[in-house]
Amino acid sequence: MIHEFSPCDPESFPRLGRYRVRFSWLRCAASLMAFCAILVSLSPAARADSLQALVQRADRILRGKSSAAVVHMDVKTHGYQRSYKMVIWERDDSTRERTLVKILGPTSWRGYSTLKIGNQLKFYDPKTNHVQAVGNSMLGDSWMGSHFSNDDLVKETRLAVDYTPSLISKRVAKNELGQSATFYRIRLTPKPTAPVVWGRIEFEVWQHDDLVVPVRCDYFTKVGDKNPVRIMRFYGVKEMDGRWVPSEMQITVASKPGEYTRLTYDKLRFDVDIPASKFTEQAMR
């Protein structure tokens, strides 16, 4: 789009039919206008690019090329309330993502593990020593009684890849750590062919210096919906393995007020060398 042209070389001008722009002041004005146009046209893209970067960094803040974590998950529903302890191993190769979640307690769940390789999800049941491949019909079921569904696990969100960002609002305020940060509220619309079930997501992040931290993620079924069906909030920003990350996240569902699932990272290490043998059925048992 950007032609190489010099205001002062008539031959280099783009042709407008038979006529060439002759007068030099016109040429200069034209080139100035062109330059402004380029600037203007670049800015939204530039803004979008930086928005994209913001989304990417906030979304992947708890991930690296690989990670290993010990987490506890509190689930409160109208029927029960419990707390799980689990260890999560993750490795993201260029080909596919691999995750192993092993539940360490309490009693009824100790030994259950979930293995995800790409899009394939498998469960291990220690009571029967049986590995079950998760079929389509099970995708809607809740994972381990939490507010995450099996589908959530299979399709870990890739907000930066599957969605197109646009800025809703921007403000400066104090973040959790008392620092002055820029809070961005970003509207994410799914890319046309992305296999994601949400019609719209509103993602709020703050940026301070070089750090981008997610605050809250609202999930809407349809693009035009007013109220989100699911809300994920991020808290407890602290330093873990040399990075500042939100160590707690909580998910609530609009149709079930009073219920929540809360994940808290007790230990987290990034970019560790997890052997491939960790992501096998044997490792599940």
């Binding site: 689930v75 529903t77 029927g79 029960y80 009824s108 769940w109 259950y112 469960f123 049941d125 009571k127 029967t128 049986h130 079950q132 079921d141 809740s142 381990m144 009684g145």
Partner: peptide
């Protein structure tokens, strides 16, 4: 092998 979800959300298999 039967696998189901118990009423308290525990995955049960037998």
């Amino acid at each position: 092998y039967l696998s189901t979800q118990a009423v308290d959300g525990v995955a049960e298999g037998i």
